[in-house]
Design a protein around this nucleic acid. Structure first.
Lengths: 329, 329
DNA sequence: CTGTTAGCGCATTCAA
DNA sequence: TTGAATGCGCTAACAG
């Protein structure tokens, strides 16, 4: 805090003020290598007297490290970025990255042109990539240069470790709850069908229905409330005796409930509704939504931490999803 | 795409492959300065043959530019970061920053120790700061070194341009709607009282109530649904004849509605409820929420763009908020 | 334990 | 119009 109006202090300034060489200053400030107590003290004092802040850019350059973590969301159009789920991922990642001097960038990865990934691999300023909404095609397009610094929030591959919620278990829990409540004609509003991690809950649904000898009633959704509402109406038209709807996301479920209400169908009296995600509004909706947890922030935190640390990661890290029984089912 | 397994190409590689000097290659790739058509062609060809991607880190270092945009959220504790509003801001900023090679970091700024701002000002790797939830104290703590690269999402100051929604107009619109619907005993659940941008809607409320000769009934909230619910109960206890509640945020309003419902109070029949933000779930809640718009993503986009561009910015950029009349009022 | 020496990859003077 | 040289701020060998 010596000269408030001048330019920020550099390592050189600190070294000079402390009467040591730049290398020594670097060592004590960096915390590695040897340094006498005396040197340590003087450098430390000089540093905070001058208000020294290491220049992350220079450090990254010389170490060949990156300064950006890219969140790449695959999808048919840039609209996939307009999703509270993505917001939460990015925000959690940005929070983890901050203390490391790393920033987060958000990009859309065109589903049919995953070649954009090559660019990321060749960009030395990128310290890691978080892939979101992966497909087999996207995973195949991951360049070798990205190995070890790319993870998937969703389905993984041999080259791309996965960090994801256990969709199947979550779906299972909600569906069993529906069944335990006496529901026997359960329709499901899915997520986008191209999304492999969302397919896991569809698989769980189909498996459960078949095992119980119940009809399989699928309507395609896209995780949005608007589409959920339309899907619910479609389901009730095609199968009027439906007594429960399982939605692949809470947003979808809220849309389903709103549409049912609009049709004068009582929830849960006539039709029970279950969701997935346990978003904040699930607790205050009317009726309060029965759903399964989805620890989005924890997942993003773990994923970002993994690429920041750069240590080897198990091929798949599954985060449990547990039932939250409320009023809608 | 010459040698896929080797290290990413550098400017040197491109220059060598094109048979020109590094300086020339830099000029044509950077788009500035002169270069013969021939040189331009050869460098361009070499660049994309080698899959050259400029190293943002090196570029930033030499130009003295930053590589990170820091979103600093002021608050009493780190919990302020757990807010969908913050998520949206960060996400929108990360989207704008991506094409510039800039990443976004998210930090909590302790309300009583805004000295952390000095560190940001002295950090040469920080290209800009987005202040969120500002107070006078925080604004005063903005170091001179940050001038020109810091903006506020909320209240500003002579040194910190403001980008914010027109809270007063939004509050005004909802309150007038309530009044037009015949409500005369309108309570308000506020945001945190230390938050100056949230106080603007309180001021609007008080002004309107006084002008209409109506009672002022304030309960302090914190933008959350949980607190909104408790506040609603408190209001109905203190002033049982209350016929409308204006909440400073949609989350609060949803909490209010849930609490009222729990007490058997009909919305909007007994008590009308208005919110602010127009979050996605406002449209599908039951009853659908009457509220005013809050273009969070647009605000963050404009704010981030302003600091990235580095051009002078007007002291305050207000984003309009308009009424969305639905069922709750 | 410490200082000297080399760069990291790039933009930008200055001369040619 | 181009190339050679310089340095952004820092870390990592290396030699003292």
């Amino acid at each position: 805090m010596e000269t408030p109006t001048s330019r920020p202090a550099t390592l050189d300034d600190v070294a000079r003020a402390a009467g040591v060489s730049r290398a020594t200053a670097s060592r004590v400030l960096g915390g590695y290598g040897f340094a006498s107590v005396d040197a340590r003290e003087r450098v430390g004092a000089a540093a905070d007297r001058l208000g020294y802040v290491p220049n992350v850019t220079a450090r990254a350059l010389v170490r060949g490290a990156g300064v950006r973590l890219v969140v790449a969301v695959a999808g048919t159009d840039a609209g996939v970025l307009d999703d509270p789920y993505v917001d939460r991922l990015v925000s959690a990642a940005a929070r983890v990255c901050a203390p490391h001097g790393v920033g987060v960038a958000l990009e859309w990865l065109p589903l049919d042109a995953p070649a954009g990934l090559r660019r990321l691999g060749d960009d030395r300023s990128v310290c890691g990539v978080l892939l979101v909404n992966t497909t087999a095609r996207v995973l195949d397009a991951v360049p070798a240069g990205l190995r070890g610094r790319v993870v998937s929030i969703g389905t993984g591959s041999p080259a791309v470790p996965s960090f994801d919620v256990d969709n199947a278990a979550g779906a299972d829990a909600v569906l069993r709850h529906l069944h335990a409540g006496g529901r026997r004609r359960i329709a499901m509003v899915t997520g986008p069908r191209w999304l492999s991690c969302a397919e896991r809950s569809v698989t769980a649904y189909e498996g459960l229905m078949r095992a119980a000898g119940l009809p399989v009633r699928l309507v395609t959704g896209d995780f949005t409330a608007a589409r959920g509402g339309r899907a619910a109406l479609e389901a009730m038209t095609r199968w009027p005796d439906t007594d429960a709807i399982y939605a692949a996301s809470d947003a979808t479920a809220l849309g389903v409930i709103a549409a049912l209400r609009g049709r004068g169908i009582g929830v849960p009296h006539d039709v029970a509704v279950g969701g997935f995600d346990d978003i904040p509004y699930a607790a205050v909706s009317s009726p309060a939504l029965t759903t399964a947890t989805h620890p989005v922030a924890r997942i993003a935190t773990a994923a970002a931490t993994a690429v920041l640390d750069g240590r080897p990661v198990p091929p798949v890290t599954a985060f449990p999803s547990t039932l939250v029984a409320r009023e809608s089912a």
